[in-house]
Amino acid sequence: MDRSRIQLRHLRYFVKIVEAGSFSRAAALIHVAQPALSQQIGELEDALGVSLLERSPRGARATLAGKRLYDEAVEIIKRIEHLPEVVRADSVEMAGVVRIGMSPVLASFLSGPVTHACKAAMPNITLHFVSTTSGQLASRVNAKTLDLALIFDDEFATGLTRHALFRQQLFLISQPDVVAGRDRIGREKLGELPLILPSHPHPAIATALVDPLLAKYSDSVRVMVENDFSATVSAVIAGLGSGILALGDLTHVEGASGLKATPIEPPVFMTAVLIANTDLTPAASAIHVVIRNLITRYLDNGRIVGAVRADH
């Protein structure tokens, strides 16, 4: 491998290993198998002709050459990540209104960062946000009353462009005493708990989890809610039972700081996708790129609890 074939992923992986302090921790953070991570670093060292990391039972740390590369790599990654935003930011075309939809769960932790990233990159664009169910958002994108939307799964995306962002694990959302001493909960144990379930669950959740629970443990269902996010959280806060959501971090959910998110095992995943019209305006196309870059950075930094890359 010659220097001209150094890939951005080599630099991303190297930076993450240096920051994590070990191959194993870095592999867990970026959801890449450790042997594959070692291979990528080997390719990078071969291309540069130097040793970049000192490996030991305690972890890995950068050599002198590695420290120099780390500083350069961080800057390179930042420049490349922001390149689409930079080249579009001053364009006269980058003005107008872009209409974005998000499912309530995704909006709970992404609406703020998406707004900030889009306004920083293209301050002349006005964003119009809508938050409702994935099915309704897809229908609105199809009807062209929305330009693009972040939803769960691709079941509703017929006839639209689709970009898979990540796969998100489901969690039991409960009062802390419900799962005291547990760092995960088995599916078979869910039926023993008073549950708060959506009356019209997402098909992916219904097939994998809700339908089997209702068939076997119908007496455990305390509340059926129409709005499966805010109503579920409110009911859990009120102590009416526990909910099931594709959300592992409740710090951004108002009033939910005292609740606990416990991963369900074996895991059930939903796929978060970015859907869009096929004839986006230049402004909407630019926002599409900004959102994808933001999600990539979040995944690289392990900032979405319970998320794995869509191709894993």
Rank of each mutant, 00 (worst) to 15 (best):
M1Q: 03
R3N: 03
S4E: 12
Q7F: 03
R9A: 07
Y13G: 00
E19H: 04
A20I: 00
G21H: 04
G21I: 02
S22A: 01
A26L: 07
I41A: 05
G42I: 03
L48G: 07
L48P: 02
G49A: 08
S51A: 14
R61S: 14
G66M: 04
K67W: 09
R68Q: 14
I76T: 13
E81M: 10
V87K: 13
E93Y: 15
M94Y: 10
G101H: 06
P104A: 05
V105N: 02
V105I: 15
A107F: 06
K119T: 13
A121V: 12
N124T: 13
I125W: 11
H128V: 05
V130P: 00
S131M: 09
S134H: 09
S134W: 09
L137D: 07
S139D: 12
A143H: 10
L146K: 03
I151H: 08
I151D: 03
G159V: 05
L160M: 14
Q168F: 06
Q169V: 04
D177F: 15
V179H: 07
A180L: 11
I185W: 06
G186R: 12
E188N: 10
K189C: 01
K189F: 10
S199V: 08
H200Y: 12
P203D: 11
A206I: 00
T207I: 10
V210E: 01
D211P: 00
P212W: 08
S220Q: 12
S220E: 00
V221F: 11
S230A: 14
V236I: 09
T251I: 11
K260W: 11
P263C: 05
P263I: 09
P266R: 04
F269M: 03
M270H: 15
T271Q: 15
I275Y: 02
A276S: 15
A286R: 09
V290D: 03
R292Q: 12
I295D: 01
G302V: 10
A307T: 08
A310S: 15
D311F: 14
